[in-house]
């Protein structure tokens, strides 16, 4: 079942087209990555999908409803965790509920139960500065989940983490996605990360940015370490590299 659909999205800044005629979709519980070199328009596309910017052409559909230019419908997690330093973790996480009109006490109660599930037990009343990078990212992900309507956009969620933390976060992320069934579209520069985590990969390239390729990773998750050394992995990688380097 398709939950999010982008139809013919085009956007220009000062007369210069950044992305052109983007068509993509996301199914329920699916993990889809968006790969592309820097400056190709990935973040612009995310800003449009989340309703922060309006496209010049095209529309964004969420569960059949046109949400083009409407913010607050799809949750959006950016590269930095963006936890408000002056709020305790529980208040950061429950903020989407408070914004939607819930009382602070009620909102805290609602999210409190999720802390254990997300491996954040004991962090509820700490400030963000008291947590490690990985734990902060988990808290940001929980906040994204709380505000999601079954769909989340993640802009390079693991890029700021060190290799070891990133690897453990990948495992944690796949495990969480298995439990919560939230459709996520995430931006990454890392081909390995995209193959390792995604069900499908969109490759964005060119100027203006267009979808250069759509690759389905037909391998059961969680993917074993041996997969990285398999022929299939090499083939997926080749397809991605070909799409990334293909001329418009």
């Amino acid at each position: 079942m398709i939950v999010l659909k982008a139809e013919n999205i085009t956007k220009a800044y000062d007369g210069v087209k950044v992305i052109h005629n983007i068509n993509m979709h996301l199914k329920k519980g699916e993990i889809v990555s968006l790969l592309g070199v820097s400056g190709v328009g990935k973040t612009t596309l995310f800003h449009i999908l989340s309703g922060l910017f309006e496209p010049d052409e095209g529309r964004v559909m969420l569960n059949g409803e046109d949400i083009t230019g409407k913010s607050g419908k799809i949750s959006y997690m950016q590269q930095k965790d963006l936890l408000l330093p002056h709020k305790k973790i529980i208040d950061n996480v429950s903020m989407p509920c408070v914004i939607k009109g819930m009382k602070k006490k009620e909102a805290r109660k609602k999210v409190e139960l999720l802390f254990r599930q997300f491996g954040l037990e004991g962090c509820e009343y700490k400030y963000p500065s008291q947590l490690s990078g990985g734990m902060r990212q988990r808290a940001a992900f929980l906040r994204t989940y709380v505000s999601s309507n079954g769909v989340a956009l993640l802009d390079e969620p693991f890029s700021a983490l060190d290799t070891l933390t990133k690897s453990s976060m990948h495992k944690w992320y796949l495990n969480m996605m298995d439990q919560i069934e939230m459709g996520t579209l995430f931006i990454t520069h890392d081909i390995h990360e995209a193959i390792h985590l995604s069900d499908r990969i969109y490759v964005l390239g060119g100027k203006p940015g267009i979808i250069k390729g759509e690759i389905c990773i037909e391998q059961e998750k969680p993917r074993k370490e041996e997969f990285e050394f398999s022929k299939e992995y090499a083939e997926y990688k080749r397809q991605i590299v070909d799409a990334l380097t293909a001329q418009a």
């Binding site: 800003h47 922060l52 913010s71 607050g72 959006y76 950016q78 930095k80 903020m95 914004i99 505000s147």
Partner: peptide, 19 residues
Amino acid sequence: DYIHLMRSMGASRYRIFVN
């Protein structure tokens, strides 16, 4: 980016100011 985040959550100007 904090303002973008708040806006993506549907926060009003007042909420962005206060929070």
